[in-house]
């Protein structure tokens, strides 16, 4: 039993190692030269780590969001969390131009928290059997928030900054010293591993959770914080990366179910692996130039998303 459960995890680790090695080796600069060690430690290693942290954290955030909403078709990128975090960051940048990175990240996280909380209250009255209304509402909500962010960005000449946050997530600019916030995203995702049983029980419904002695609101708040912090850190560091939080949890759930205690670590590793694969593809397709990872993932993810919608019409 233990062997069976451990197997997907071991497979994931084994798959991740060659991917990480490939990511370390791909690039224009020659690692065997005099600067090789420096390039590795300043650029390649941080980039590889950043991609894996982002992938793992976004996949876990996707699972958490799906348990909170009890719907498979949501992720932080389709519920307004990213746009709301960008709004928080933008407002903080405007109101306190001198503010340090800590303050601005708190503002981004709070923005994401508020935006997601509004989304949750928006969907509360939707009929639960209409599963596609929830992601649609999320898309509309994130569209509205995105428009507000763009408008303010336009008015205040910060459109370039906003563009980096909202448009295309990519890792070409990642070097040592410019990705470390992603560790916070990783830590937040790690929190979900500790709360795996609680989140899984919450997914069974408020009634069941309360009956088992859990406080559903408290678990909900914890989940919200995880989702908001992960999204805010990723959005501010590398930009939004669509679909990852949707695709990876759905595939892992198909294969091994939603017993999060067993499946969340696999989901995290699969997220890291998928994003790393997309990043490597993006770096190789038009070498020595790069395609943003979110573009590669968008093409891949849209396909998988359509497939998910198509094979499970209407309900679960």
């Amino acid at each position: 039993m233990i062997v069976l459960r451990a197997r997907p995890l071991v497979l994931m680790v084994l798959a991740l190692i060659p991917l990480a090695l490939a990511s370390l080796l791909i690039g224009v600069a020659d690692l065997s030269g005099a600067q090789g060690g420096l390039i590795l430690s300043i650029s390649r290693w941080p980039r590889t780590l950043a991609v894996m942290l982002t992938g793992a954290a976004l996949a876990v955030a996707g699972v958490v969001m799906q348990e909170l909403v009890r719907n498979r078709f949501v992720e932080p990128g389709t519920t307004g969390t990213g746009e709301a975090a960008a709004l928080g960051l933008l407002l903080a940048t405007l109101a306190f131009p001198e503010a340090g990175i800590g303050t601005r990240m708190i503002a981004a996280s709070l923005g994401g928290l508020a935006g997601t909380a509004v989304f949750l209250s928006l969907i509360r009255h939707l009929p639960p059997q209409e599963v596609l209304l929830i992601p649609l509402t999320g898309l509309i909500w994130s569209g509205v928030l995105g428009a507000v962010v763009l408008h303010i960005g336009w008015q205040t000449d910060l459109i370039q900054l906003v563009g980096i946050w909202l448009m295309t997530g990519e890792f070409s600019g990642v070097i040592a010293g410019r990705y470390e916030l992603l560790w916070i995203a990783g830590l937040a995702a790690g929190l979900a591993l500790f709360a795996a049983d609680r989140l899984a029980i919450l997914g069974l419904g408020d009634g069941v959770a309360r009956g088992l002695g859990l406080n559903p609101e408290a678990v909900m708040r914890l989940g919200l914080v995880i989702v908001a912090v992960v999204t805010a850190m990723v959005m501010a560091t590398v930009g939004m990366i669509p679909f990852l939080g949707l695709v990876v949890p759905n595939i892992v759930s198909r294969v091994m179910g939603d017993n999060l205690r067993a499946s969340l670590p696999v989901t995290a590793l699969a997220g890291a692996g998928l994003l790393l694969t997309c990043d490597i593809i993006g770096r190789l397709l038009i070498f020595p130039y790069e395609l943003p990872v979110s573009t590669v993932l968008g093409v891949l993810g849209a396909g998988v998303f359509l497939w998910l919608l198509w094979r499970r019409p209407g309900h679960d």
Binding site: E67, R70, N71, R72, P128, D197, A200, I201, G203, L204, G205, V208, L212, G213, L214, S253, R254, G257, D258, N259, D316
Partner: peptide, 17 residues
């Protein structure tokens, strides 16, 4: 009505929480 994809044993085991 449960959205989660759990095995029967996993669901029942949550009763021990």
């Amino acid at each position: 009505a449960v959205f989660s994809r759990l095995r029967v044993r996993e669901l029942v085991a949550f009763g021990r929480w």
